[in-house]
Design a protein around this nucleic acid. Structure first.
Lengths: 188, 188
DNA sequence: CTTCTCTACATACGGTCCGTATGTGAATTG
DNA sequence: CAATTCACATACGGACCGTATGTAGAGAAG
């Protein structure tokens, strides 16, 4: 079964990329870990970049689903936006996501918005901002531009937190500063 | 003269990293381009990462100087902040800076704020925000947190612009959204 | 039932690249 | 003038990626 092979390789690749980084991950080791050889890998994913792309698509989809769930649980649309970004930052602190999606991904594959996965995370936050504008909850703004900037801010916050000695305190500072910035969107 | 050798290698490395990316740049080619061999490189910079570090320190210092110059030319402190970030975004669109400092740098060396260069750019914008707070121009805010988020937003804006079909229009959208976010800092 | 083809991998090979170990000529020091 | 150090060159080993080739099994064709 080919689908099973792909699954095994994806799991092994996620673990290897997360643990050693894209450049440091050996395809021989990684495939052996999955009980296969590089032949299977090149047959299914084309090359090493293709494998990274597949891993990223998977992670991106998972993150977008988590974001949407968080946003939908919120009592108020504006609160939903803040909750989503809090969740985004917290996810971006996870080593696997940070290493693969935020550091290696852009370096190897270039601008995330050009990825085939279409960057589901970005689409999700863009959609939410657009909804806020359409509902009149915030003044008109280019939703994609705002989402991109807020995503960038969140991502940097996550790098900061991950490298911090006191992650909890740093998270608090980052969230407070983020709220201030986001409120710039809410004012006329 | 050792300083001259370092200079030659740094120039060649900047060009090679910018053109082919860190992973794609061959140290044999790069050193040959400088009229030297890998021996000189390992003697002066330790390893490939050390060379990247040196290149990044150089670029970072240049950017910080440019930022400071822009900020000081401004008529008003708040305007200085906006001008600085406009300049930051415009610099971050330059292929050399984007490729080396923003994409490969974090992937290879990790969080920029931990770099020996101390990230002069971040220090510069942090200093400017702190000044605004101390002068009472904006309400109190954690200057480092705000600077990190705004830098992250700018960086993402630059990636967006660089990948855009119509960079000028995209730059306009990004700057407008950025102004909105920054104004969140200015309100009580 | 036989044969042929096609698929999904495995194996083999070549070339590139990095880091280190070693060599070397010039400058410096005592 | 001998000895040492420095700044760089050369040589070597090992790892890794991509491709070319091999192969066992399944299904189609006749």
């Amino acid at each position: 079964m080919m689908e099973e092979t792909r699954g095994k390789l994806l799991r092994a690749a996620r673990a290897a990329f997360a643990a050693r980084g894209y450049a440091g991950a050996s395809m021989d080791e990684l495939t052996a870990e999955a009980g296969l050889t590089r032949g299977a890998l090149y047959h299914n994913f084309g090359d090493k970049r293709g494998l990274l792309q597949a891993v990223i698509d998977q992670i991106d989809a998972e993150m977008a689903a988590r974001l949407r769930a968080v946003g939908e649980r919120a009592s108020h649309p504006w609160r939903g936006l803040l909750d989503e970004y809090r969740a985004y930052i917290e996810m971006a602190v996870e080593p696997e996501i940070q290493r693969i999606l935020l550091l290696d991904g852009p370096a190897v594959l270039g601008d995330p918005s050009l990825w085939p996965s279409q960057n589901a995370c970005l689409a999700e936050t863009t959609r939410r901002i657009r909804t806020l504008v359409e509902d009149g909850a915030i003044p008109p703004v280019d939703a994609e531009a705002a989402a991109r900037l807020l995503n960038g801010a969140s991502l940097h916050a996550a790098l900061w937190i991950a490298a911090s000695k006191e992650p909890e305190a740093t998270l608090g500072k980052a969230l407070e500063a983020f709220r201030r910035l986001a409120e710039g969107l809410a004012r006329p």
